[in-house]
Design a protein around this nucleic acid. Structure first.
Lengths: 201, 201, 201, 201
DNA sequence: AATGAATGAGTTTTCATTCAT
DNA sequence: GATGAATGAAAACTCATTCAT
């Protein structure tokens, strides 16, 4: 049992070491040798925990991106849309800013790696979509919002979030200086007002 | 003269072959050997036209992404915001859908490759930002829009566009089936209504 | 412990294999693939021991030329000039004859390769020059030798040694057949009598 | 005939261009493309004049080293040894210093390239050896010199010359500053006094 | 379980030489 | 004769993965 505990720690240590190096050099840029050294284990040991470098990436993605977002989504159940969206965006902005290079590296692999993309679409994008759908459905009965396609709204939210963090930070120092709560509020307002049914009073 | 025409074609043929392979396997995944074979030339010939694989990528990016967008931006000068945005989004949606895998590959390199990113930020993102700024400025005097940070608006537009095309296509078959003009109209409306100053009557 | 011994042997084996091939084909002419095959290892293994083909050359130069000469110079401390020079020349002649092709290859790289030249000038030529200077200085006080520029004398010694071995062996079968002690004696006498102050009785 | 003259000039121009580039980058370092550009001809044209890059080297060696030395040797026929040697060394020192980088490049190929070495040994070393032999023979009858092996003496002369110019220049700034006539005189004296039969007079 | 030495397929790039025009 | 676009073999080096200890 003690051993299993230790092994679990090993696994976590390796993931953390990999995260540091993927953040610095990207997935392809970080070599297994570097990761092993950073984790304080032998190179061969890596492959006892993860059959493949790619499996390590996937485990890291799961541990550092999927789980936190899912936890966060489940922790935000019953609020009114403006507040829900503001909180969701704020948390994401803060987290992503804090680990920008790692996020960039992960984000790149979402595009490159079939397995990672699949996990992203199934475990992150789809639950978020469901959440948006639920949110809209709850209010649509009251005619507050126009009957837009929920995917559209979801991708506006997600796209804005990623454009602002991953690219905006480098293009626009002014934007980078804005406090996250302000960005979150403005984005949330933009989206929700944008989908309002303005024919209603 | 004939020769010059022919060699100009060679260059274009190589770029097209590279585009096909970058689309399939990404920049790093496509080898120079494959590209040469696909273009029907010897491997060494590649390097007569482009000193480096990376230069080939950059030339391709320039030819297939930068120039078209810039031409398009300049061809949409003096319209009212809703129509301008709708047309811009529509053209981009159609183009990107038509070359989806290539766009995905390029998009990835925007993140990875310093040179490509620089070109993207300078030649695409910045002009688009200026356009958005101009559009907002023209109307702000009339108090129609809230005084949002233009970068925010720009990244919402850009992020929505890319989320919908590059990811949305794969997540949501329904969304993939929507005609581009409808997506363009809904997105344009969402954004512009979202930034309206609703306190005005 | 066994492992350390074995891997030390690997390094030495690779150096020896490289020496054989450098001797046959020169530094540029010998490919890393050939060296690996000759050493009985995989090509990649080479680069575990030497980060660069050039580093391998340098290590070989160090092991097979620099160290032996320095040891030899230090082992010949306090003799009268004729005997000192004779012994020095004799040892060099024997050693260089025994490894003629390798010496030729090294010699070439002294001219070509900046790093090797630096090592040669600093670790071999300079100490030898100092030795010659010291030798002359000891006797100059007694007015036995003309006050020649020590570099001149050093290069006469060095040039004669290398001309005789590296080229003379191939030009002149008669010369090649002479026993080294005879060559050494004649050269030493030539040089020392050549620098004598003949105005002294 | 006019054409043939022109062609002869082309050949010479190419050789001169090659000489400049070999001096800068060495034989292997200079590409045929560079040489063609420097000579103002197309790359393919090179191969109409010289079937191989190596043949071009050989032609250059012949034109710029072999012929001048042979001419020089023949122009120094009947002098007494000291003057003959002094003049020979002086001319060589001046010429080699003036074209040091080219000489270094040629010198390197003497070692590397079988064909060049053969030419060097046959056309340069052997005639010089004959000259030295003749010189010694003329005086040996008079018992002035000890009966040394002529090759030994020849290689002392040649080795000293090359050591001083090709290496000495870089090791020893003081030596580099010495006027060539002084070096020539000291070297000539060293050698000739070194081979004197000191038991005479 | 852990190690780390060994592997070798695979990568980009160079350049002397050829040959159709 | 002259051209220069095309060639493709070859080179140095990398790194995820294996496996004997």
């Amino acid at each position: 049992m003690g051993l299993r505990r230790v092994s679990g720690m090993r696994r976590a240590e390796i993931i953390e070491a990999a995260a540091r190096l993927f953040a610095q050099h990207g997935f392809r840029g970080a070599t297994t040798r570097q990761i092993a050294r950073e984790a304080g284990v032998a190179e061969g040991t890596l492959f006892r925990y993860f059959p493949t470098k790619r499996h390590l990436l996937l485990a890291m993605f799961e541990a550092l991106a999927v789980s936190p977002i899912q936890r966060h989504l489940q922790a935000l159940p019953a609020m009114e849309p403006q507040r829900w969206l503001e909180e969701f965006l704020w948390e994401r902005l803060v987290t992503m800013r804090a680990q920008l290079p790692l996020m960039q590296a992960l984000y790149q692999e979402i595009r490159t790696d079939e397995a990672v993309r699949r996990v992203f679409l199934d475990q992150i994008a789809r639950p978020l979509l469901e959440e948006v759908r639920r949110m809209l459905a709850a209010e649509l009965g009251q005619g507050r919002y126009r009957p837009l396609h929920p995917s559209l709204v979801m991708w506006v939210i997600w796209g804005a979030l990623h454009g602002v963090t991953i690219f905006g930070m480098e293009l626009d120092p002014e934007l980078a200086a804005l406090p996250p709560e302000q960005i979150a509020r403005q984005l949330a307002t933009l989206v929700l007002q944008g989908i309002e049914d303005s024919s209603q009073t």
